[in-house]
Design a protein around this nucleic acid. Structure first.
Lengths: 194, 194
DNA sequence: GTCTATAGAATGATAGAC
DNA sequence: GTCTATCATTCTATAGAC
């Protein structure tokens, strides 16, 4: 059992991604070495290159998959703008509480992406922001939102909601349902017409 | 002029801090080498160690000075809670728009601090958050704020406001006064009693 | 598929000349 | 006070044995 040899392609791949995610989130992409990741996976550094072309692709794949999941996981319901906003806000909080590490690196490690990769990730992020802005626009047109600038309000709301990952801890003082409800309350009031 | 020698202690020190700040903000602490910083300053790498004991101290000093400035620069005025909140929000936006790089690294590079340094920075950050929470508590007691949980509201507001640094660009579509006013409007509504 | 071994480059920090 | 030169590590990535 001391020697670890043989084929484990089916499990090493996912384990590599999990280890990279955890270490990148904890220490930052640039501060983590391929050796550290390999140690976490339980293989030698050289073996990682069977599953990823390089370290950069490891980061990019994590971020792209995360943002594509985020976009695929939610679409605005056919409903009045206020209900659409509630759906967006509650989904955003839930999704972010479920995947704190992914959210964290998708936000913190943008600087470490190659220019081409950065453009892809920024495009996906913009798609997500555009969805919220569309809700705010519709609501303003309908007179239910009082938002002087929909772009600024979009950025302000997303920053407020995403910030939950910086302080929320599982098993803490507030449970998830309460957190979700309180953020929805603040978001609603921040953009509501008088 | 090809050879750069002689005494420049008075200017090299500040220039080192400026260069480190700019590079850390742009590429991240771990991704920046002492050689890069030295090149930016216009000296050799070895010369940097006349002005800082090591790379870690460079980061810590920037973050500590920034947070101490932030705390020294503002104190709650003797005024009703709503006016205190307005003062806090407007100062926060102004301060953050004035020092985007410092704000950015103070937020992004926490993971790269030694444990002892991290504790100091976290303490300063908590002091700042406590000031906002005190305003919210007073306002809630006075019946002018409707905040179910002051701690969550504090984190939500600070995240919303600090987020301005992620999108605001000098000379962009909105000027600083407008940005400040719009954030104040959203913050006020988010916590105001009906 | 994983291993050992290593190439080739870069890193943080120091020593000693000037 | 800054320089050149260098130490001792560390890094990403590859080559070839098994």
């Amino acid at each position: 059992m001391a020697r670890k040899q043989g084929s484990h392609a089916d499990i090493t791949g996912p384990r590599l991604r999990e280890a990279a995610l955890r270490l990148f989130a904890r220490h930052g992409f640039a501060a983590v070495s391929m050796r550290q990741i390999a140690a976490e996976v339980g293989v030698q550094a050289g073996a990682l290159y069977l599953y990823t072309p390089d370290k950069q692709a490891l980061l990019f794949d994590l971020m792209r998959d995360h943002l594509e999941d985020l976009l695929a996981d939610w679409a605005p319901p056919e409903a009045p703008p206020l209900m659409q906003l509630e759906s967006f806000v509650r989904h955003h909080i839930r999704y972010h509480l479920d995947r704190p590490d992914l959210v964290f690196i998708a936000y913190m490690e943008l600087r470490n992406l190659d220019p081409a990769n950065f453009a892809v990730i920024e495009g996906l992020r913009r798609d997500y922001e555009t969805r919220l802005e569309a809700i705010l626009r519709r609501g303003r047109a309908a007179g239910v939102f009082d938002v002087a600038d929909t772009k600024l309000a979009t950025m302000a709301l997303i920053a407020m909601l995403t910030g939950v990952t910086t302080w929320y801890r599982e098993g803490g003082r507030l449970d998830r349902a309460t957190v979700e409800a309180l953020y929805w309350d603040m978001a609603r009031k921040a953009v509501a017409a008088a």
